[in-house]
Amino acid sequence: MDYATLIGQATLNGLVIGAMYMLMAVGFTLTFGIMRVVNFAHGEFYMLGAFTAFFTYAYWEIPFVVCLLIAALTVGILGVLVEGALIQPFRDDETSGMIATLAISVIIQNAAVLIWGPAPRPMPDIVQGTLMLGPFSFPWSRLVVIAAAVLIFVTFWLFMQGTRTGRAMRAVAQDKETALIQGIRINAIYPLAFGMSVALAALAGALMGPVFSVSPFIGLTPMLKAFVVVILGGLGSVPGAVVGGILLGLIESFTATMFGSLVSDILQLLLVIMILLVRPSGLLGQREY
């Protein structure tokens, strides 16, 4: 095994998981930025997205692009309902809101075990073949994940910048009081933001389904990484989530190649603690209060 292959491999893997972390972290940071809600069920929506893709793609053999849309829509709508019924009541109580999302996470995960069983299910690749570039070889299945994640993020970004709803969301995130005065209806924005956030998680899950496998327990790790990313990038900061996500993916891939995944995970936590010591609000975040 030569270094070039190793480096190429590590970079590609890093970008794939980095793209996933980016989508997870952007969604996670969105709910926090807009609603001040820390969603501990974020990983379960990832899992639901993966299962949706699994059934629509592997069972019903619907084209994958359509599968992605179905995953985003069903999970997004579920998110809107969950927000309205179970998160809205805790709008002024951050701690209770956090505990509520923990409860939601427990319920979704165990319901998934009950319905689909605990065993992991492999999923077929979306595309076959590899791209050869000099000494490097890249499987198309991975490249597609990266391209799709970038496309999804760009769409999300355009939505936030270009549409009325997106601008309203940003206004709420920046200053809730002023947004209220300007006549922005928080009661419409919050469920929508939550739905969008978990739809992003579902898309990440659907994209990663073929890369890893699908089981009720797959949500934990991506959520954990989303935490690391938002701490690195600053809670509530979308650019921070993007930079942090890709950075973390690369760091993880390289350290795992060099030292194994356990050391990699521990290094990541140490990194988080160190960064928090130097910059308590993350690399790109703004100071709270």
């Binding site: 179970l86 209770s96 505990i99 509520a100 427990v106 319920i107 165990n110 319901a111």
Partner: peptide
């Protein structure tokens, strides 16, 4: 069991 734990937790919070 776990689902019930979750439901009870949510119910009490609410």
């Amino acid at each position: 069991q776990h689902i019930l734990y979750g439901v009870i937790l949510l119910g009490v919070l609410l």
